[in-house]
Design a protein around this nucleic acid. Sequence first.
DNA 1: TACAATTAGATGTATATACACGTAAATTAA
DNA 2: TTAATTTACGTGTATATACATCTAATTGTA
Lengths: 152, 152
Amino acid sequence: MVNLETAIQSTKFKNQKHKAVLNVLYSAWWLKTIMSRELKEVGLTHEQYNVLRILKGKYPEELCVKNIGCRMIEKSSNVPRIIDRLVAKKLVKRSTSPTDKRETVISLTMAGLNILVTATGKTDLLFQNTITISETEAAQLNQLLEKLRENE
Amino acid sequence: MVNLETAIQSTKFKNQKHKAVLNVLYSAWWLKTIMSRELKEVGLTHEQYNVLRILKGKYPEELCVKNIGCRMIEKSSNVPRIIDRLVAKKLVKRSTSPTDKRETVISLTMAGLNILVTATGKTDLLFQNTITISETEAAQLNQLLEKLRENE
DNA sequence: TACAATTAGATGTATATACACGTAAATTAA
DNA sequence: TTAATTTACGTGTATATACATCTAATTGTA
């Protein structure tokens, strides 16, 4: 158990709100780090995994680049370039939409589906073992995070 | 007010814990985005600002690269390269430690201190206007985030 | 219908992240 | 005191982020 003070070696927070901002940023870095460790074993980055999961959510329906982008957790991700790497690994296929030639539609390959199953198994197990807060606490946390962003 | 479901266009969360993981990641991205917008006006990136703040915390004491690194929110930040850019802008000064020639000690310049004051004023105002949760809620949020990381 | 405005996505650039590796200095051990 | 080990930090590489710009396709409008 590492509290924020220890993690970033600082005790000078203006107030609880200021501490909460740093705490959210640090927690996100920590989550990405432990997830990436698992994903590395199947050769995926966190963002590549995110794109694959978005495609899985609609599978076997295809999604265009724009619709993948607006579902990303990090909105400023450069989706075409992440797709480049997934295409190179043959995990997705790119093709032009017949109805709108501006759109590039992306579909999961079998290899993509398979790697996703393995990766999801790994991250699920990780969360099960590492994140032990109760469902009630998680629900509270969700409520407070949305309160934090209420003026979004 | 934008809830997570709308933000990432998904309603399929395995449970509250799974949703909390995505919620923390999304909230961190959101916080970084709104902060970066302010910092851009003074020509700083989020990470450059973080390094300057760490230096301010010990000012006028100097800090070596390693001690800056272990105080960073994102531990895998490449501190030497962030310092490169701060040196180029004359916001910090680099020199070799006289007591241990392996160490590079970094000190804030007057320009660095000044820009930090402006930047901090901007982010403080931003938080004041945008983040309106109470101190009690923020304290609760801090407690839950540390619970989330309890097996760190 | 023709032309302007908008939209989708590819691409370029600067910065950052994540991680490996190299070099020099300091520390420890033989 | 020399040799091995460790530490601090710079550097290289692949990927990602953040944002601007370009092109082609589509849509809206005169």
